[in-house]
């Protein structure tokens, strides 16, 4: 079949909402876009373990400690599911991890901000996971089968993450004056970076959007961001806290919240490596991987020895 026909057939499948599976023919650009997006998503989960892992040893109660550990562990699982989905496209996990460690591959910039107080655990759960979930729910319907299935599993597990974050902020908001201040401070610091998680404004894009056409993505950045603002602007009232945006107000005409301008200079700076923690995050990942090298080598060597031993035993029996 001619390439042009293959591409036409491929697009027809997408238009009919038929999922694309690993062995199906697909345009190289579709494969590459998926590998890039899925692996970046996986990296975000793995790097995202670090800012929260930062508070595991200091969690203020045994219950909170168990919850936080389970949450960070879930993120490891989510990274694993996603790497597996990307591997079905022919790129090894090791290759993807190398790209992360060399700084070639990207991850969500939000994880380059520091977690400074315990309230950040609540704010990250509520705002950062809340923003991620909007994206993830949409991705459950993405056109590449393994990615969609990984997202379904992730969404099921993720639902406790945002809830626990909000619940722990509720406790702080009803606590001592110091706890209330801690809560507001965390919201102030995490609000804008959370909005940035959705990426640049739609209006900055002039090219036709291949990701939408291929149904890898189904909503634009601004659509998702508006959903998020509308949701959070209501929830923050339940905490008796405020969002750090003087321009935030309900617009009766659009039936949405208007909000202020995002600091895009900060956004691009963090993407380019100048966030408060870019260097530490990558160093931590590199260190863990490097120090794990002899462990992985030993496990392989042992597996090989055991296989040979069993083969010899079989020979002896024969």
């Amino acid at each position: 079949m001619e390439l042009i026909d293959l591409e036409k057939k491929f697009q027809e499948k997408i238009d009919k909402e038929i999922k694309i599976e690993p062995l199906d023919w697909m345009p190289e650009a579709y494969r590459k876009t998926n590998v890039r997006q899925i692996s970046q998503h996986a990296h975000s989960e793995i790097v995202g373990m670090l800012p929260e892992g930062n508070w595991i040893s200091r969690a203020p109660s045994l219950k909170r400690k168990a919850i936080l550990i389970a949450k960070v562990q879930d993120e490891a699982g989510h990274g694993l599911y996603l790497y597996s989905a990307a591997e079905t496209l022919g790129t090894s996990r090791e290759q993807m991890i190398d790209d992360l460690h060399s700084g070639k591959a990207k991850y969500s910039s939000i994880f380059n901000y520091p977690t400074l107080t315990w309230a950040d655990m609540g704010a990250v759960g509520w705002l950062v996971d809340g923003a991620a979930i909007l994206n993830q729910v949409m991705l459950c319907r993405t056109s590449y089968g393994p990615y969609a299935r990984a997202m379904v599993r992730i969404c099921k597990e993720e639902s406790f993450h945002q809830r626990q974050g909000f619940e722990s902020l509720i406790v702080l908001s009803k606590g001592t004056a110091e706890q209330k201040a801690m809560c507001q401070d965390a919201i102030n610091r995490w609000w804008w970076p959370s909005l940035m998680m959705f990426g640049p404004k739609d209006s900055e894009s002039t090219n036709s959007d291949q990701s939408m056409k291929w149904k890898i993505k189904r909503k634009t950045n601004d659509e998702l961001r508006q959903n998020f603002v509308d949701m959070i602007a209501e929830q923050v009232k339940l905490l008796g806290m405020t969002l750090p945006d003087p321009d935030l107000k309900w617009n009766e005409a659009t039936k949405h919240y208007d909000f202020g301008e995002i600091n895009w200079e900060e956004f691009w700076n963090v993407v380019k490596g100048n966030g408060p923690c870019n260097r530490q995050r990558l160093e931590a990942r590199n260190k863990a991987h490097k120090e794990g090298d002899w462990v992985r080598a030993a496990a392989l060597a042992h597996a090989e020895k055991r296989k040979n031993k069993l083969a010899k035993q079989d020979l002896a029996v024969a």
Partner: peptide, 19 residues
């Protein structure tokens, strides 16, 4: 400007670091 989304940042914008 190539549009991108959460989890889909173009590689040419050097991130992370220079390790």
């Amino acid at each position: 400007i190539r549009k991108f989304y959460y989890g889909d940042i173009p590689e040419e914008n050097t991130g992370g670091s220079t390790i």
